[in-house]
């Protein structure tokens, strides 16, 4: 078992800083005419996705190939998992094929940690149930640091994380990371969308978006993850939207310089009004763009840095 990235809490402050610095280096690489470096030449990165994903998987695969790693892709549909293979057998097979690092997404919280205990290769958690999605947290931090032009911190920034917090791995990673970087985090949503006991979390809580809206610098909207609950958490999406949709009217009551974020995929009209997604207030495109250099940084940090080659030479 080697060093993996499962949760934001795995990282020391110095390691967070290192990854943020590395992602700036790789952002520069990405801006080149030929955005590719031989940093991980000869290494094989496997993506092992048990849950549907578009941007995250593509973003990791692009990151790996821009580092000149070979990429192998495993997705559940049509695989041996569909034929009843156990999680352990699947993971061990991928390792036996020669993967040097496995990027894994799975619908169960704790699944990536479980698999990492069975394997020798490092793993990156690309989202496990409602537990963690650390690279999303890192790319969101990079996006905000870039926006606020700060020195690897978010001191004094007031971030509202709005909506379906309880089912959100993005929220759990972001709450930890943003608060460690100095931000004030406010969770906003109906009680059924907030975890039952967060008394020890470094957050404030509000049930009213309208009440906290004027104080927030960042409006981070979450996707409502209907696939993760079966009972009547909400009367209807429309009823939820009447209180929590970031509409044009609500945005007018926000700070003039407040920005809008969303981890995607966006359900336009439920969480955010259609036109706000593409407005100049939205950082949503930048979040996706920053995904690649941040994931390059994480892959490089886990694979090359483990071999003592922490400072890129190109």
């Amino acid at each position: 078992m080697s060093r993996s990235l499962i949760s934001i809490s795995d990282l020391t402050d110095a390691e967070i800083e290192k990854i943020l610095d590395l992602s700036k280096v790789f952002a520069e690489v990405n801006s080149r005419e030929i955005p590719k470096v031989p940093a991980l030449k000869g290494k094989t990165v496997a993506t092992l996705f048990f849950e549907n994903s578009t941007r995250t998987r593509l973003s990791f695969e692009l990151a790996a190939s821009r580092l000149s790693a070979d990429v192998i892709t495993f997705s559940v549909a049509g695989s041996s998992v569909a034929k009843g293979e156990s999680l352990r057998d699947t993971a061990e097979t991928i390792e036996s094929l020669g993967a040097d690092l496995i990027v894994m997404r799975h619908p169960s919280s704790g699944s990536v940690k479980l698999v990492s205990e069975w394997l020798r290769v490092p793993m990156v958690n690309a989202g496990d149930g409602a537990f963690q999605h650390p690279t999303q947290g890192l790319l969101d931090a990079v996006t905000l640091i870039e926006h606020f032009k700060s020195e690897n911190n978010l001191n004094g920034v007031r971030i509202g994380i709005i909506g379906d917090v309880i089912h959100s791995r993005v929220a759990r990673s972001n709450i930890q990371l943003m608060s460690r970087l100095g931000a004030e985090v406010v969770l906003v949503g109906p009680p059924a969308f907030l975890p039952s006991d967060i008394s020890a979390w470094p957050v404030k809580v509000s049930y009213s978006l309208d009440e906290v809206l004027p104080e927030l610098d960042v409006l981070y909207l979450l996707r409502i993850q209907s696939e993760r609950f079966s009972d009547a958490v909400l009367p209807s999406l429309a009823d939820f939207s009447s209180s929590y949709l970031l509409s044009r009217d609500r945005l007018k009551r926000a700070r003039k310089d407040a920005v809008v974020m969303h981890p995607g995929p966006v359900i336009r009209g439920v969480e955010i009004a259609h036109e706000i997604v593409d407005s100049e207030r939205s950082l949503i495109r930048r979040q996706v763009e920053n995904g690649v250099p941040v994931r390059m940084a994480v892959l490089y940090w886990l694979l090359a840095a483990n071999e003592g080659k922490l400072d890129p030479a190109w």
Partner: peptide, 11 residues
Amino acid sequence: NEGSVSSLLGI
């Protein structure tokens, strides 16, 4: 159990 642990783990 529903409580601080399940809240943290997202279970």
